[in-house]
Design a protein around this nucleic acid. Structure first.
Lengths: 318, 318
DNA sequence: CCGGTATTTGCTCATATGAGCAACAATTCC
DNA sequence: GGAATTGTTGCTCATATGAGCAAATACCGG
């Protein structure tokens, strides 16, 4: 398109989108036929000069969702818009809301839902509406009873989700990681714990988040791991954790020994499950999001626009 | 509108604007009639959830231009969009381009055009196209021969504008400010200088910029004033300068004595002229822009979106 | 519970717009 | 210079959309 046509297309766009003139009226003003105006408008769009954004906390980015589905084989992808967000927290809240929406609209409604715990899932639980489902048995899929107040959220997340669904919560009364393998094995042998784990393994759907491998991890916060241990895991290729287990970019367990001492369902059980919903948002979680998606650890990803774009970027450069 | 309708309007907007579905198709997806979809879309727009931006260096903001004209009595207002700009310099360049465009499209073409000098006008001169007018006599309206290399731009701005119009430039071979009143009067008595000033007073149109009153002023840069003098002017209410003369928020000369020692047309001559084009852009120029517009120093304002919004804001709070 | 008011819905009809096509113009290549 | 090709223009026609209106529904004070 000629240079002067480009300029005309901008003038036309101003009159069309900002002044709500019809293409006919614009034609009179710019001394063009209305067909020419239509073509200029189309070219302005094609050249990307017209940017249309939906600015709303609940806005999603459907084209990105579609590209994600196509390029990753995910069953579904939910991508919340980052248009107009002013803080990372706001973006995470939007993502949690979207996860709650997705969960609420899920058909058939899962009878048992396995969940992990953490800030993200807690956020999701708060965004669910009372009565979002008619009775769901929520079961924890990894240990979460910890040494400090963070404990509360693990249990309360499950209880809240279950309560709002007029259902029941089955807690896993157990730390995330044991120091000694023997203690862990003993614990798992316990009837109560074994029962919960069996239930967890047979859940119809899983909802979980993931953490980036760094000093801010919930596992460190709760006292299960030290910053030094995380550093060590990172140096061995860890990008983050899923249900308390640290994986590398290829989805492999980084430290099998540590993995053995970790209570909860195995990564492979997630891989095999037919419906696994990962909720991952935040600029520091791109690496772990990539690991989760690339290695089939989830069938549904709920995330934010920035993270989604990072995943797509990645695909492009393959 | 109900809460659930708001959410529906966002879903509809996603399908309409991002997925290019027809309202009919959206109706099928959301289980609504197509009329309802149309209404939801309209409400999304009315609620400001749909943001349409024209992202292009030449894009203007017509609604803001209109509001500016209506609220200030300007004959014309040109407001360049700040969508997608990454630096203040880029915004100023866009504004200069718009000023050049406006000048080029001016009818009737002024036979003599009075201009001031400075970074902004120099920028405008560079953006003009060769042959933008068939012969214009460009005359400097304030002194500009200075003590250092900045000199060049004052003369070259006039020469460039004239040259590109296949016209002639009449320079004012004279400093902006004299130290002694007597010297200035002697200079003005000189036939050559008096002739240029007479020409300047009778120009059919004026093109000028304005400077914020601070240490970065071109007057300081060129050595006509010291930072201390500026500080003094500011303390006496100066907001900036127009054709080398410092005015306060009410458009009044701040220092009559200094004004007397300044060479060029008077502020009142601008006020009386039928076509005076002010080009003012930049976040630090809101105050001087306001003074210029509020006190009728220009009939046409070329500015950027941020400055224009600042002017409108101001009006709202009156 | 009921009459009246306000809001929402489904519709008709006029208008705005995009797809597709033939005629035309411009450019390239021999 | 002229034929071939490419791109552009003006158009017809089918479709999408918004305005306006009557019917239906929801809301509210008694």
């Amino acid at each position: 398109m000629s240079d002067t046509d480009e300029l005309l297309s901008i003038r036309a766009a101003e009159l069309y989108y900002e002044e709500n003139q019809t293409q006919d009226e614009i034609g009179v003003i710019l001394r063009l036929t209305r067909w020419k105006v239509g073509r200029l408008l189309a070219s302005a769009k094609a050249n990307g000069f017209i940017r249309i954004e939906i600015v709303h906390p609940r806005a999603r980015r459907l084209p990105i969702e579609r590209r994600l589905r196509e390029s990753t084989g995910l069953t579904d992808a939910i991508v919340v818009s980052s248009a107009g967000v002013s803080s990372e927290a706001e973006l995470q809240s939007r993502t949690a809301q979207a996860a709650a929406d997705f969960l609420s609209s899920l058909r058939p409604i899962p009878r048992t839902l396995g969940i992990s715990w953490g800030r993200t899932l807690h956020d999701v639980s708060l965004h669910l509406k009372q009565g979002w489902a008619p009775g769901v048995n929520v079961v924890q899929i990894n240990g979460g009873v910890s040494l400090n107040q963070r404990t509360g959220t693990a249990a309360s997340t499950a209880v809240t989700i279950a309560h709002k669904a007029d259902g029941s919560a089955t807690l896993l009364p157990c730390p995330a990681v044991f120091e000694r393998l023997e203690t862990k094995q003993a614990m798992e042998a316990d009837r109560a714990v074994a029962g919960v784990l069996a239930l967890a393994r047979n859940a119809q759907a899983y909802l979980f988040s993931a953490g980036q491998a760094d000093a801010n991890s919930a596992l460190v916060d709760s006292g299960f791991l030290t910053v030094e241990q995380i550093d060590d895991l990172v140096s061995r290729g860890a990008v983050g954790d899923v249900v308390g287990r640290y994986i590398d970019a290829n989805g492999r367990i980084v430290d099998p020994e540590l993995n053995e001492r970790t209570v909860g369902i195995q990564i492979d059980q997630l891989r095999r499950a037919p419906l696994t919903i990962a909720v991952i948002s935040g600029n520091d979680k791109h690496a772990i999001a990539r690991a989760v998606v690339r290695n089939g650890l989830c069938t549904v990803l709920v995330t934010d626009e920035n993270t989604a774009n990072a995943l797509l970027q990645e695909k492009d450069t393959l």
